[in-house]
Amino acid sequence: MYIMIITAAVMMALLGLALGMIIGGVARLFRVETDPRIELVTELLPGANCGGCGKAGCSDFAKSVVSGENPPSRCPVSGAEQVAAIARALGIDAGQSFPMKAVVRCGGDTRQSTRLATYNGVIDCAAASLVAGGPKGCAYGCLGMGSCAHVCPFGAIEIVNNLAIIHAEICVGCGKCVTACPRGVIKLVPADATVHVYCNSPQKGVAKKQVCKVGCIGCRKCERALPDKFKVTGFLAEVNYSSAPTAEEAGAVGCPAGCLLEEQRHLEIETHDPDWSPDK
């Protein structure tokens, strides 16, 4: 009885040993040379695979960092500390990073802008814009069907009242939403900018007013007050992000259209203030 058990145990052990040696031998014979640094860098990266760096994913980016093609700072998701850690691990220069974030340049939610038709189809901005340009009165504003929110790997985009709102503290500026938006409403801006013009329509002021209460009317008040911080092209004001205005400066301008807003205020209006109107 004991003999049988012992024999079985010994046989299994020998079998295991033999197979293990075969596996070990094969692994040694056919092993693929990898740079251990790639794995190290991949571990230090956030692992979101967002593609914001322009590479196929985090491990692909790690490969390019190790080969010197990209500096570690190219990763939009990693903070300064993480970038420094990668640079330290590889003994290279971290490179300069310009953190970006995405901004939806539209304030035309259901309260402020008109819908000219009932839309009855695929809930996707690109599909909707193929049907008479979508239900929205303004042909340049946010359609609010969430194609950008759908592609955001970080869940930074919320749809409130048919308008896409980007939560800046979550956004890393990978730019996926920028390519997903069929109307080009979303733009990447420096992450430290706090004031934006929430309008994207180049139409004449009168035409915009017919479809939206908060469209830029091109009055040039902002440009006159701060000529180096704002630029009005046609009927659309733009923030000069290379010398971005502060919240106080923007507040002092007193935009009559209600499209020049501080980011935090815009978020409050859309998410907490159902009665807000530019006339007040």
Binding site: G121, D124, A126, L130, V131
Partner: peptide, 13 residues
């Protein structure tokens, strides 16, 4: 199902 709309979307893409 809005089949044609999906198809038009794909054709555009």
């Amino acid at each position: 199902r809005p089949i044609v709309q999906y198809i038009r979307r794909a054709k555009a893409e």
